[in-house]
């Protein structure tokens, strides 16, 4: 009994339930993806799933296409979002907090319903649903995720640095490229990750936006598990593993800033 009391008193042990939870529901499931990816339905080791992927031109093309779309979405969001975050963070706006909230508020409407409304908007203006609609819809859905982290870093930035740069003779452009931009890099990294990760993996948005005309990599995975039946699970796991590697690489390059800024979204 005394031992138990000391265990509880050392507050380190309070994390144990969560550690157990993480091992069971985060680590083990990821291990299972790897296991399924390298086995056949009978449970024997095989590389067949990956060979099947690399031999299916359509699947490889979808993969490359999805990466390109995600990259393009991220770039567009950055180009649109950085100026917006910059303007909001600049003190000349009297109500930056309200503006920031206005950019977040749309996220309270279910994103699928917003996507469907976007489709209707396109229909009303007679815009065909295709690649353009897909890119628009993706940027539409994820732009706030780019604006918010950049806005956060810009707002926290020490403004006296800008004044100092001005006093030392830098012109407006130099102040931006040599002081503001480098200092806002953490926010840019977070924004890139927070936009790229969901866009590279989405399946529902693309299906709704293009009425199934365009298939993204996420849809391939979903179909393997949804319609493919038992035989396709291993193949689906192999596709998932490929995506997991992409995600791992992205987050490795973008370090872990993302978590904090997303936590700050509320």
């Amino acid at each position: 009994m005394n031992k138990l009391a000391t265990l509880i008193n050392s507050r380190r042990t309070w994390a144990w339930p969560y550690v157990l939870f993480l091992v069971l529901f985060v680590v083990l499931p990821l291990v299972l993806i790897v296991v399924y990816a390298f086995t056949d339905p009978q449970g024997h080791f095989t590389l067949k799933n990956f060979i099947q992927f690399f031999n299916t031109t359509e699947a490889v093309n979808t993969f490359i296409y999805s990466l390109a779309i995600a990259l393009l979405t991220t770039i567009i969001c950055l180009l649109l979002g950085y100026p917006a975050a910059y303007i909001m963070a600049a003190a000349e706006l009297k109500t930056p907090a309200v503006m920031a909230m206005l950019f977040i508020l749309p996220m309270w409407i279910n994103f699928l319903l917003r996507t469907i409304a976007t489709v209707e908007l396109f229909n009303m203006f007679g815009i065909p649903l295709g690649e353009g609609a897909l890119l628009y819809g993706m940027c539409y859905d994820f732009l706030p995720f780019m604006i918010y982290p950049i806005y956060n870093t810009l707002q926290k930035m020490d403004k006296s640095l800008i004044e100092a740069a001005h006093d030392l003779g830098a012109n407006g452009r130099e102040v931006f490229t040599k002081v503001i931009l480098p200092l806002s890099m953490p926010g840019i990294y977070s924004g890139i990750i927070m936009v790229f990760m969901p866009t590279v993996s989405t399946f529902a948005i693309a299906e709704l936006l293009t009425r199934n005309k365009i298939t993204l990599f996420g849809s391939l995975i979903q179909r393997a598990f949804g319609e493919g039946g038992l035989q396709m699970w291993n193949y689906g796991a192999a596709l998932s593993l490929i995506m997991l590697i992409i995600i791992g690489l992205t987050s490795f390059f973008g370090n872990n800033e993302e978590a904090d800024s997303r936590g700050g979204i509320l």
Binding site: L22, L32, Y36, P198, A237, L244
Partner: peptide
């Protein structure tokens, strides 16, 4: 220890929903 657990803690945040969903799907089937 703290670093290790914080790393584990960041996985569900970084993982896209489709991967979290599929990995848990496999776990429940398993």
């Amino acid at each position: 220890q703290r670093k290790a657990i914080q790393f584990l803690n960041s996985i569900p945040m970084i993982n896209p929903d489709i991967l979290t969903g599929i990995s848990l799907f496999l776990l429940f089937v398993f």
